[in-house]
Design a protein around this nucleic acid. Sequence first.
RNA 1: GCUCGGGUGGCGGAAUUGGUAUACGCACAACACUUAAAAUGUUGCGCCGCAAGGCAUGCGGGUUCGAGCCCCGCCCCGAGCACCA
Length: 901
Amino acid sequence: MQRMQKYDPKKIEKKWQKYWEKNKTFEVKDDFAHPEKKFYALIEFPFISGVGLHVGHPRPFTAMDVIARKRRMEGYNVLYPIGYDSFGLPTENFAIKTGRPPQEIVLENIANFKRQLKSLGYSFDWSREVDTSDPKYYKWTQWIFLQFFKHGLAYKKNQPINWCPKDKIGLANEEVVNGCCERCGTPTEKRNKDQWMLAITKYADKLLDGLKTVDYITPARVQQENWIGRSEGAVVRFTVILSEAKDPRHGKRDSSAIPQNDNLVVEVFTTRLDTIFSGTFLVIAPEHPLVKQLTTPEQKKTVEKYIQETAQKTDIERTAEEKDKSGVFTGSFALNPATGDKMPVWIADFVLAQYGTGAVFADAHDERDFAMAKKYNIPLRVSIRPTDDEVWQRVQKLEECFPNEGTLVNSDQFDGLTSAEAREKILPWLEQKGMARRKINFKLRDWVFSRQHYWGEPIPLVYCKKCAGWIPLPESELPLKLPEVKKYEPTDTGESPLSAMTDWVNTTCPRCGGPAKRETDTMPNWAGSSWYFLRYCDPDNDKEFASMEKLKYWMGPVIQSAAPVILSEAKDPLTLGERDSSVATTLSQNDSGRGGVDWYNGGMEHTVLHLLYSRFWNQFLYDIGVVPTREPYKKRTSHGMILGPDGEKMSKSRGNVINPDEMIEQFGTDAFRMYIGFMGPFDQAVKWDTNGLVGVRRFLDRVWSLQEKVTDSPTSLRAPLLEERVQSTDTNNPLSSRRGTEGEVSSSVHLTSLLHRTIHKVSADIEGMRFNTAIAALMELSNEMMKEEKISNFQYQVLIQLLSPFAPHIAEELWEKFGNGEMLAFFAWPKFDAELAKESAITIVVQVNGKVRDQLEVPAEISEEDIKAQALASEKVQKWLEGKEPKKVIYVKGKLVSVVI
RNA sequence: GCUCGGGUGGCGGAAUUGGUAUACGCACAACACUUAAAAUGUUGCGCCGCAAGGCAUGCGGGUUCGAGCCCCGCCCCGAGCACCA
């Protein structure tokens, strides 16, 4: 045998990357092939900046690449696309700094990203790249916006918005983190501005309900639920007594006397209607619209001062002083519709203007209200009794606040009811009097959709004075391209730099032909990323954003779950019993709107914003009939962060940034990819450790050197045709089950068994994203092979096949070396054979009183009686028995015998 | 404060979900090869103990023949939400 060449990753990796590029290996060949076995794998496309890929990107990209590659070998028609999110602040800031057009910068940055991505050997379909700042792409982003506008879901509103004084940009609530700008960390202020809004709140229920139909990892689902924040309760009306002197009912306790059509009413949202009888005062937000009307002349000065003070505070300051419940009395009173008592109306900034009705009724059963009442000596009344008598003693004396549910007291006819019962009875009672109505409230607020920046999609609307409103551009005029400007800076007045472009701004109204002005705000960064997964299905279409046929195919409802367990174990009578291909067909017919991207992996940081926004867009597009599925993604998983070697988040300022280019240069792409998978559990944060990379590189060297142990001639394996792989239950797969064993030489039964157990483990672990244990299993297999004198061609090739999703270059090279004409990337994934995986001899552990005392090597088929007898006969066990009779002997099949004395 | 995760050797981490705790890798040590080093290979490697054996999965209890895993009560770390009525 000629001397083996050394493993040289640089040479072979470049070779295969060139080959894949030249042959367009991973481009989808047929958009409609065997729909029951298609797979759409999606990663979050990178947000473009000048720094290029950091080491965090390869984690999700490699993970999905491994899954995509395995699925291809299993015969799936796989779509694994890539694109670039290129509108946004990093590029704009760079343009401002250098004075160069962002369009140019984007092209350079994309070229760099692309070079890096290619060097990582990803099996992307490079023919489907999308770029959100390309007019061919944003034409359709604008088109979708027009549909929102035409359906009344995009509207302009003057309202206080979150303003970042550094970025000079209006922010959606979702983009404000702890009162600071999400991007730059500057505390945000409130500013009043006309803003385009998208009515995402109209979809609150649908967005919540949709979560029940998708397979998201729990934290992602829970975060979405919390963000939408649905709560059931009631809106209660509190009639205001403008002047105490004029009110004849003063001091009376007769709720029936409350007039029905009093025109000054404070509405309050509550989830605790059971506490209504303890309501002794009202508190409204400083921004409440009725503040002026409610403030009496005597209180005017104090109230104005308080409001001014709170307006000056930033959101962090307002929430920082958590415990101190400052407030001010308006001078007015309102009537409690349940008790008829008069309640002073206060203003306090712990009440949020944006939530509920911006007003609360305050009582002894809420910590904040309780604290405020104590501070200002406002009378309190207890109406909920806890079960614990000791607590009740203290609560009655008003020494302690009891905010939980209990039994009603001091509540007239409702005394004795539980909180839950009381809510159901009190609501109709108040409803009848016209003082309350059922209400479901959401935390979710409408989405501020305009930005005062240059580098974003222009909003395709003009304002026409004559038509008295905003007029959409005809769809035929899209895309409305960004004009070239000289300066990219946002202005202090909060206007976009586009507003200085008078040529561009002044236009004619598409409706009346008269003079009109263009909207100069642009769309937020989230716009382009809210629908890119749809464009991948049909990226070059210039008639529509994607054809329905292609969307139906790629986003289709077919559930090809990696774990068919879910379907087969379902109690659903429809699926019980028979699980054949007709199930999929049945689903697609009966369950319209079902489906989505098969598997979407992305960062936890996007589970609220991006995921919610894109679900909203997709649901809207479904409702207007242009996409086939209600939800955009069937399955969502998330990766943990990669931390610097010091265990801290990687950042330039800390100097702990790892550059993937350098790692690849030093260890090779395959080793880098393997280390990314091996470094730790996929969903958890892990520290970077270059030593670990050394370990996987050693493993690859060993796999390479194992070829010397292969002595028999290659079993010329014919690649199964695509059709053969699609029918995966084949008898035709040359590598499946026993057929492969013909090629075996001297190897032990043990190795064959291990080989099959490894096939099983690696297959299951890849689907479960347990890449670390999959790789550990491959290492174990190769360690066993190292111990053998010789291994068979067949065994070696199975190892290479299992390795190939992780380390595709070395695998393809070895595959070629061993005389296989076909691409390994499309060769059949090895088949697991349960029979061959069985070991002939097994180790049974013998425990005495729960402690391991002996181990027995026995034939796998040993009977229960035999093994029990053998265990009791064991010398070591006898020693522990000390002549006594065992009380009980337990046998766990194939595992252990437990002797109890 | 609330909601999710998590706590296992010197380190990253395994453990088929109640059945041999510490797989795999790193680091370390000894040996082989080498003039030497690197690389590679072999062996060892939780703690105490000469051994028999004992003790170990954040802490304290419990259930069980048997608990890293289940139950009760705490402590610590990470992520998200946070005056949401």
